[in-house]
Amino acid sequence: MPVVVAEGVVKRFGATTALAGATCEIGRGVTGLVGANGAGKTTLLGLLLGLSAPDAGRLEVLGLDPRHAGPQVRALVGYSPEHRSLPPDVRANDLVAHLAEVHGLPRRAAVARASDALYQVGLGEERFRAIGTMSTGQTQRVKLAAALAHDPRLVLLDEPTDGLDPVQRDEMLMLIRRIGTEFGIDVVLSSHVLDEVERICDAAVIVGEGRVLAAGPLDALRSTVGGWLVEVAGGSDRLATALVARDLTVTPDGRRLLVEGVDDPAVLRDVLADLGLEVVRLQRRRLSLEDVFLESGVYGPVEGPA
């Protein structure tokens, strides 16, 4: 059962259309919500929490419609916002316990789980410090602990590595991965840093101009815009001509040819054998999420090599 279902979701703010028919399914595990700044990621998170209603379309979170069951959805969801949004003069443990209580836990359980959550995010020794005396990295961890303390079924994290140095960023990413695996809590990680999504996510939803441009497991996303790289020792022109004759798309890439539209790799093998060419390299093109992102049309049509 998917954790989140969105069908044709539209959200407008005055004349601005933040989401223009977003459609996707988010499954179990850690999912990256990827898009440029202003793509509609935070708007989508707000709709998932039931903080505003979509102008059109259908949303389902953990089997509930957040438009009609907002408080019930939010009781089951943990949320860590992008901005620094914690009172500086309150101790971390007190705030996390209070927010767990606000999410429905009885007082005693909230206090116990606040300590546990702060310990899990690496602030066990620091939990009685005032938040205002903490570093940005520690504050991000407090926000994460606050999102976890009530044992949610789903955690929404909005740019959780914002403002962190490389070491803190690595630690935070590993922590988020643990939440999605060891803790068994599904995670939606909103980020514009593709590298971090690629490192820890099982799947991604690519958002651009208010639409979902691509969604699915990372491996599947990479393969949908994949292709094969072929390099031969001489005769690449003949090879290109032969491949085009078989209705394949061929793009020169330095000394290699990028061949797309290959349903069966045996076709490549047969063409190479027929032409008697010496094969230097024949491999599936390995795409990064950045390639997928760029080819999804987020920034308009991608120009191919001349």
Partner: peptide, 14 residues
């Protein structure tokens, strides 16, 4: 001022 209001609205509170 601190933005805690946003966190409250992400809870069962309206």
């Amino acid at each position: 001022r601190t933005g805690l209001f946003g966190l409250y609205l992400a809870s069962p509170l309206t």
